[in-house]
Structures are given as structure tokens and as C-alpha cells.
Design a protein around this nucleic acid. Structure first.
Length: 875
RNA sequence: GGGCGCGUAGCUCAGCGGAAGAGCACUCGGCUUACACCCGAGCGGUCGCAGGUUCGAACCCUGCCGCGCCCA
């Protein structure tokens, strides 16, 4: 900091060139340590842990959106005096990386099994070092104010220890168990998936009705319908409703399963819907979740008829070895050949679960031995934390979604038949012993470790505290846990947020974050979901190249309404870029006019000064409250309008005549400098780079990153001054409108006399009205060709103009006609209300008075306009 | 099938009980020494439909129609 006035426009190039400046600026911020948090600080903490992007990922528009919003929060809090930690890191993305490396191996003509576990994992780490983490550089580009000294990875040493520690605790508490259950199997990955990794989608399939038992109508037979013909090879029963009289005589008997020849039972079960199809359903306990339950209730055999790749196996039929989809056709054909196909409905639309990762293949329900987390007690705590208000879900509309999930959560299948990830820390002894050693313990000699790894979300569920050092009692943990805000998309509320909440409450005995703030999905400019197949995706990196980072951030912030999807397209970014240019140019103008925040604010401000200073105070309060409430779009919009429509469009224009007047020029420079200084600081969290460049030039300060967040900039609102400015604006606008409609060229100076200005208290505004309307003083022989009346709050102004030609009477008549119609409509509406005795009687007095005042104003307007119309020459 | 939400200007959305708003698009006029990435003026809506509550409804309630999303 210097105590001399900083150099002026010399510092500011005529144009902002983001590409040339941003990277260097960012590295200076990092080097200066602005983003490095101090756990020993006395300042109040503000902490956000990054939703860890996949190590495979590169920055897409969803990241850009999420990071922009988080960065806005962090930068604001940092400026506002909080010890701010935004902790970066990445997720090891078990399935995604595993699949990626497997594909690479396949391309080389080998496989992970050929390579062996150890070599595979080594190879995967190597991939990570060489190709992973592309997103980190892109985060720098985006300006993320993360603390790089604390960067973490969900498979680093400390995360590993956290996983082992909590697994052991859950295991010892009986909250982790191993069981044979119906699971979601991915034949592609040859692994189980958790429920949340399955997406249900309507598909056009077939509904085939087929006849079991005898082909002789006199003998016992039964017709069942299915969308999955091939699973009949694993049927072990037919179920009917107990009250269904059509089948009462068959219940308890056996019938022959076609193609296989096995005898299967006919059982009565409450869960059968007698109105669906024939009212009889086939039961395949090992390959359908509902059938599994039926099988359990009736103690049915549960043969598995498919291997882990989705091929038919162990049925002893010709179909063994066929893929499930091929078998579906062949089995149907075989049944048809026997005359057992009674009906076929095709297409038959029904819902099928698909793997949300990988190739989006249909998942296969399969009976399998897996590890599970018993979620009931954990989920209850997660629900209670929100119910009690300890943790806030924002926006509140998404609370039901939270409860709907945590209150109905199924046990979480955590084992995956993959190699890349945290290996399950359970060891088996030679005689079936099962042990779970703690992080510092060794398994007994001769024991072998479980082959599977943990679901990726297991380690990311520990993220808010594993990143702060848990299970060690670190200063970071003491300072920053619980974290302040968890900000992420509503789409991973269940995948991730629910898990963090459960683990946080369990491991730390305290919530992992105070507030869950949810944003929506970025959509295209028409509000359509972005998808690669549709081709409507956008690339934030391309936008940053074209428009600069600040424009991308500003555009994203401007559409970020809490919890709702955000449509965005080129136009939005273009508009944001233009806004940056506007800000750049107005700062250049102010500085070239000698503006500086170091100058003392005028003791006798003009109306315009008082007005803009009051507005600044109001806007800062509004923006501050909106940002505190995660209303990024509204805060950004408020700043956009203040900057452009109030500061640039009005104050700066009003300031020009003030700068030409000795009495007001110094004060005007001070006000310009003061407002810009505060405005740049308010905008900095949204658009960090351009505001830094402008602010440093304007103030000669060290960095806007560590500048103070404005607390009470400007001045308290001066209502009288504000009203006079509003009046002056209305007067100026009305004259402009008249000029436009009378087609007076913009460049022509029009001699004019403003009658009644002093009486209306607007005497001091004469110079601005003249300047902004390109008027000029009247000569002694002034002869007005037109008179315009403008009704203001404090009086009516007559504007007498010499437009040098006869005025366009039809145009003027049309203009006045529109005004008259508007006033008449206003009068009618007011009369209607006031004519209703109930309104006058029951509505609050201030509302009634307001209507009366409007009525009076409308009446006066009508009288005035009619007089003017009458005075117009006939045409 | 269950739940949540949405239908407001050509498009995308804000407003959620007391005078219909914004951005973009569109029309007209302007290179007015910060800015044509700009300036000025303007056009544009029985707030999905039908009932109800209220002095008063885009806003609250009910039903219907049409769209999303989540979960089965």
C-alpha cells in the first residue's frame, strides 16, 4: 500500500484480455498463500470439502457450475473475515477406472486375470499418475480458491486408514454383515452394484403367455405371462392368490416345467395380483427380487441358472452357454414349437433396471453372497439430524426427497467384484473363521483376505472428516469439523450426501456439515437435458477460451436458482462477457476522470451522489443476504442491474455534468471511486479475475482476494434525494420519448425551456436534464413548437421545445392517446375497487389510501392529456 | 403404481395474497469523446383449464389437462 495516489489509466489496457492474464493471476494468488487455511487461526471457520471429482474426469459444465457456486461462497467468506478452507481432492472412482484399465488391457490382448491382481493395481496407479487428475489444472483455470496444500485422494494413505478404522468399528458393532441376497448384478462388470447405481427405464419388451403342465385341456395345466421367458429354466413354482377360485383345486399339486421336465409346485401367496394376466405367475427365486421373497416364504429351491457373465448355465438343457438375450428368443421358440405359447404382446412397455455406470446394460437380479451395511440405525440418525433442524436442507422443497430416501433405505451392498479400490479388510481362516483386523493389526498367519473391494461411495462417505485427518485428532479436524456447507447436485443426494451423513454421525458423533445446499442440473438453452447422444452438451473449457473465465462463471451464477435446473447457452455467456466489458469500460472512464476511493466522500453530496450511495448500501445488503441464502442467481442479477442500469446508465451520466462543475467535481470523483471499489469487491466472488485487475488499478491495493467484504458501503438512503432523482429520470425519459416519436435526430440540439423545475425542487438537476436530452439554452427569439407536460411526484414540469419544424401531429396524438388510455384504465380499475363498499370497509387503510391516490393521479393525468390533445392543431 | 415438482411475454425463467417482471429475441432511431461486446425509444401476457376461499388470487384450496424428475 502506498499513501500517494495510485497511477491511473496507464495501468489499464483499453481492453480486457482474460486469456493473457488469468493464469498468472491465479498462480500469484496461490503463491501468496491466500487460499491456504490456518487451523490455528482465531477467525471463525468456514469450510467446504469439494465434491471429489472422479480421477478419470475432466471439467464439464456441471463441475464448472458447482465449483463456481462453491467458490463464490468461499471467496465471500474469506473476504468477510472467516478462516476459509475449501479442501480439494479426487475420488478413485472404482468402477470407472477399473473398466477403463480393463478396456486398455483388452486392447493389448490381455486381461486383468492374466495380469494378476498386484500387477493390475500397479498398472492402474500408473494410469492415475499419467492420465488422472486432468481436472485439477482446469480447476486452476476456473479460479477455484482451493487449498492445494491439503489436496486429498480417496485412496491415499490417510483415506485408507480412515476406511480401515470405520470398517472395523462397523464390523464390531454388527453393522456390517455378509449374506446371500438378491443383488443387482452387472454382467458387463461381473460385479454387484448397489441399488442407487441402478436406473429404472421404460423399455419396449415382450409379454409372453405360456402354458405349463399338460397340453391336454382335460389335464392340469396353467398359463403364466412373463417378460423374461428365459428365466423359466429356473422356475421352481407357480404362485396364485389364495382367494383365487380359478386355481384353488391346483394349489398344493405339482405340474411339469416344460423344456426342463422338472415338477414344480403350485403355491398360494398373498402377494400375487389376481387381476394381472391369468392371475398365475411363474416363480424364479434366484433371478427376481419378488420371486426370491415368494421362494423364502414357501421354502422353494433356488437354482441359479445364469453365470456371472449373464449366460445360461447349469440347467442341463441345450440353452446352457447362451447369452440371456439369445436364450430369451430360443426358449420362446422352443416353447412355441411345442405349442405352449398362448399369446405374445409386443412391444410391451415395462420398466427395467439398468446399470447407471458403464454401458447402461440391463442389470440382472441375482442371488449372491455379498457384504452389506445394516443401515437402519444409521439412516434413522441421518433423518433425525434434518428433522431436528440440526442440519438444514436447502432449498427446503428438497427435504421430502431426503426423508423419502433415508426413511426407506435398504441395506447397502458394499462389496464389488473389482480390484481397484479399498480391499475389504476381512480375512478368512482355514476353518471358516472370519476376522476383521484393525488398522494396526495383522491377520493371523495362514488367513486369506476377501477378494472384493468396497463400493467407491464407502470411502467418499468419509470425505468430510477423513480429509481433515480423522481418525487422528488433528488441528484441522478440531478447527473445521463439522464443515459449514455441503454444496452439490441433488442427483447425488443419495449416493453421497446420505452416506456422509450416516458415517459422519456414526464416526464423529456429530453432523458432517451444517447445511446441505443443493443445486440443479445444467441444461441447454431450451431447458433440455444435456446428453452426448443428443449432442446438446457444452464445454466450459471452450467457453473459457472464447469468453474468458469470468464470463463463464458470471453466466453460471446468474442462472443458479437453488435446487432447480439451470438452462444455459452461448447467449448467456455472451451477455456475461459483455457485462465484463461494461465494467471494464466504466472503470476506465472513472479512472480517467480522476476517480479514487482514497478521496473523501463529499460532505454536501448532490442528489445523484446521495442516491447512488444509498443504492449501493441497499444493494450490498440485498446481495449479502441473498448469498447467505444461496440465492446466487438473484444476487448476481441484482449486481448486474445495479452496475448497468443504475450506476452506468444513470449515475455516470449524471456525473458527467458534475465533473464539469468545479463545485461538484471532487465529490463526484470520490463517489465514483467509492462505488466502484465496493462494487468490484461485491462482484469479486463471482468474477474474480477482472475484478482483481480493475480493483488493483483503481485502489493500488495488494489483492482484492484479501480485501474486505463491504459491510456498510455508500451511505444510508436519503429518501428525498432518491425521489428527486427518480423524478429527474422520469423527466429525462419522457423528453427522450417525445424526441424519438417526433423523430428529432439524436444529434440535434434542441432549444428548450423547462418551466416549473424549481417549483418541483429539481432546480439543481437542470444541467443533467439539458445534457442527457441534448437540449440547449433558448435564444431571445425562442418560439416553442411543442410543449410537453410531465407529471412528477413534486409537481408538473412544462417542457417547451423548439423542434424547428412543425411537429408531427398524428404521432403526437398517438403518443398522447396511449398515455390517455393507460390513465383511463388506471382510473377504471381504481373506481371499480373504490366502488366496492366491502373493499373500502375491509381492506387495510393504507391500501385504500393508495388506491385513492392512484385514482386522483389518473384523473389529473386524463385532464392534462385531454387539454394537450385539444391544443394540438387539427390535422 | 407411489412421491415430489412444474405449466407466467416468441424462448428461458423470476414473482407465490394487495398496481403483471427480467434476460434474450423482435421493431424503430442513433458511431451523443467509457463502452456498437454500445446508446435511446418501443412492441409483446384474459399468469394451463374449471370451480372454490377472500373486500381482493398469477399467488391459497379442490378437480381436470399437459409436462418433468425421483422411487417401486
Amino acid at each position: 500500500m502506498t499513501d500517494t495516489l495510485p497511477p491511473r489509466t496507464a495501468d489499464l489496457p483499453a481492453q480486457w484480455n482474460p486469456g493473457e492474464v488469468e493464469a498468472g493471476m491465479y498462480e500469484r494468488w496461490v503463491d501468496a498463500g491466500y487460499f491456504t487455511a490456518d487451523a490455528q487461526s482465531e477467525k471463525p471457520p468456514f469450510c467446504i470439502v469439494i465434491p471429489p471429482p472422479n480421477v478419470t474426469g475432466s471439467l464439464h459444465i456441471g463441475h464448472a457450475f458447482e465449483h463456481t457456486l462453491i467458490d463464490i461462497m468461499c471467496r465471500r467468506k474469506r473476504m468477510a473475515g472467516y478462516e476459509t478452507l475449501w479442501l480439494p481432492g479426487m475420488d478413485h472412482a472404482s468402477i470407472a477406472v477399473h473398466a477403463l484399465v480393463e478396456r486398455a488391457l483388452a486392447a493389448e490382448g490381455t486381461s486383468r486375470r492374466e495380469l494378476g491382481r498386484e500387477a493390475f493395481i500397479e498398472r492402474t496407479w500408473q494410469w492415475k499418475e499419467e492420465h488422472g487428475g486432468k481436472i485439477l489444472a482446469q480447476m486452476r483455470r476456473l479460479g477455484d480458491s482451493v487449498d492445494w496444500t491439503r489436496e486429498r485422494f480417496t485412496m491415499d494413505e490417510r483415506s485408507n486408514r480412515a476406511v480401515l478404522t470405520i470398517f472395523k468399528r462397523l464390523f464390531d458393532d454388527g453393522l456390517i454383515y455378509r449374506a446371500e441376497r438378491m443383488v443387482n448384478w452387472s454382467p458387463e462388470m461381473r460385479s454387484v452394484l448397489s441399488d442407487v447405481e441402478v436406473e429404472h427405464k421404460e423399455v419396449e419388451g415382450e409379454l409372453v403367455s405360456m402354458r405349463y403342465g399338460s397340453l391336454d385341456d382335460a389335464e392340469p395345466h396353467i398359463v403364466v405371462a412373463t417378460t423374461r421367458v428365459e428365466t423359466m429354466l429356473g422356475d421352481t413354482a407357480i404362485a396364485v392368490h389364495p382367494d383365487d377360485e380359478r386355481y384353488t383345486h391346483l394349489v398344493g399339486t405339482e405340474i411339469e416345467l416344460p423344456l426342463v421336465g422338472r415338477m414344480i409346485r403350485i403355491v398360494a401367496d398373498e402377494h400375487v395380483d389376481p387381476s394381472f394376466g391369468t392371475g398365475a405367475v411363474k416363480v424364479t427365486p434366484a433371478h427376481d427380487p419378488n420371486d426370491f421373497e415368494v421362494g423364502r416364504r414357501h421354502d422353494l429351491p433356488m437354482p441359479t441358472i445364469m453365470d456371472e457373465t449373464g449366460k445360461i448355465a447349469d440347467t442341463g438343457t441345450e440353452f446352457d452357454g447362451m447369452d440371456r438375450f439369445e436364450a430369451r428368443v430360443k426358449v420362446r421358440e422352443a416353447l412355441a414349437a411345442q405349442g405352449r405359447i398362448v399369446a405374445e404382446k409386443r412391444p410391451y412397455v415395462h420398466s427395467v433396471g439398468h446399470a447407471s455406470r458403464g454401458k447402461f446394460e440391463p442389470i440382472e437380479p441375482r442371488l449372491s453372497l455379498q457384504w452389506f451395511v445394516k443401515v437402519a440405525p444409521l439412516a434413522e440418525a441421518a433423518g433425525d439430524a434434518v428433522r431436528s433442524g440440526d442440519v438444514i436442507v436447502h432449498p427446503k422443497e428438497l427435504e421430502p426427497r431426503w426423508f423419502g430416501w433415508v426413511d426407506n433405505m435398504h441395506d447397502w451392498c458394499i462389496s464389488r467384484q473389482l480390484w481397484w479400490g479399498h480391499r475389504i479388510p476381512v480375512w478368512y481362516g482355514p476353518n471358516g473363521e472370519v476376522v476383521c483386523p484393525g488398522p494396526d493389526e495383522q491377520p493371523p498367519a495362514g488367513y486369506t483376505q476377501d477378494e472384493d473391494v468396497l463400493d467407491t461411495w464407502f470411502s467418499s462417505g468419509l470425505w468430510p472428516f477423513s480429509t481433515l485427518g480423522w481418525p487422528e485428532k488433528t488441528p484441522d479436524l478440531a478447527k473445521f469439523y463439522p464443515t459449514s456447507v455441503l454444496h452439490t447436485g441433488y442427483d447425488i443426494l443419495f449416493f453421497w450426501v446420505a452416506r456422509m451423513m450416516m458415517f459422519g454421525l456414526y464416526a464423529m458423533d456429530e453432523k458432517p456439515f451444517d447445511t446441505i445446499s443443493l443445486h440443479g442440473m445444467v441444461r441447454d438453452q431450451h431447458g433440455k437435458k444435456m446428453s452426448k447422444t443428443v449432442g446438446n452438451t457444452v464445454d466450459p473449457n471452450v467457453w473459457m477460451d472464447e469468453f474468458g473465465t469470468d464470463a463463464v462463471r458470471f453466466a453460471l451464477a446468474r442462472v443458479a436458482n437453488p435446487g432447480t435446473d439451470a438452462p444455459i447457452g452461448d447467449d448467456n455467456v455472451l451477455a456475461a462477457r459483455n457485462f465484463g466489458t461494461k465494467l471494464w469500460n466504466v472503470t476506465r472512464f472513472a479512472m480517467s476522470s480522476g476517480a479514487s476511493p482514497a478521496l473523501p466522500l463529499p460532505s454536501a453530496p448532490t442528489d445523484a451522489d446521495a442516491w447512488i450511495l444509498g443504492r449501493l448500501r441497499e444493494v450490498r445488503d440485498q446481495v449479502d443476504a441473498l448469498l447467505e441464502d444461496f440465492q446466487f442467481a438473484k444476487a448476481t442479477e441484482a449486481l448486474y442491474h445495479f452496475t448497468w442500469d443504475e450506476f452506468c446508465a444513470w449515475y455516470v451520466e449524471l456525473a458527467k455534468p458534475q465533473l464539469a462543475d468545479e463545485a461538484t467535481e471532487d465529490g463526484t470523483r470520490a463517489v465514483l471511486g467509492h462505488v466502484l471499489d465496493a462494487l468490484l469487491r461485491l462482484l469479486h466472488p463471482i468474477s474474480p479475475f477482472i475484478t482483481e485487475a480493475l480493483w488493483q488499478a483503481l485502489t493500488d491495493g495488494e489483492s482484492i482476494v484479501v480485501a474486505e467484504w463491504p459491510v456498510a458501503p455508500g451511505a444510508p438512503v436519503d429518501p428525498a434525494a432518491a425521489r428527486r432523482v427518480t423524478d429527474a429520470q422520469k423527466l429525462i425519459t419522457e423528453i427522450r420519448r417525445f424526441r424519438t416519436e417526433q423523430r428529432v435526430p439524436d444529434s440535434r440540439r434542441v432549444p428548450a425551456r423547462l418551466v416549473g423545475l424549481d417549483a418541483a425542487g429539481l432546480g439543481a438537476h437542470r444541467a443533467s436534464v439539458v445534457a442527457l436530452n441534448r437540449l440547449e439554452a433558448t435564444a431571445p427569439d425562442f418560439a416553442p413548437t411543442a410543449t410537453l407536460e410531465v407529471a412528477l411526484a413534486t409537481g408538473t414540469i412544462q417542457v417547451e421545445l423548439d423542434t424547428s419544424d412543425a411537429i408531427d401531429v398524428p404521432a403526437e396524438r398517438a403518443r398522447l392517446g396511449r398515455d390517455l388510455a393507460a390513465a383511463q384504465k388506471e382510473l377504471d380499475q381504481a373506481d371499480k375497487k373504490l366502488g366496492n363498499p366491502k373493499f373500502v370497509d375491509k381492506a387495510p387503510a393504507d391500501i385504500v389510501d393508495g388506491i385513492r391516490a392512484r385514482r386522483a393521479a389518473a384523473e389529473a393525468d386524463i385532464e392534462r392529456i385531454n387539454a394537450r390533445l385539444a391544443a394540438l392543431p387539427r390535422s
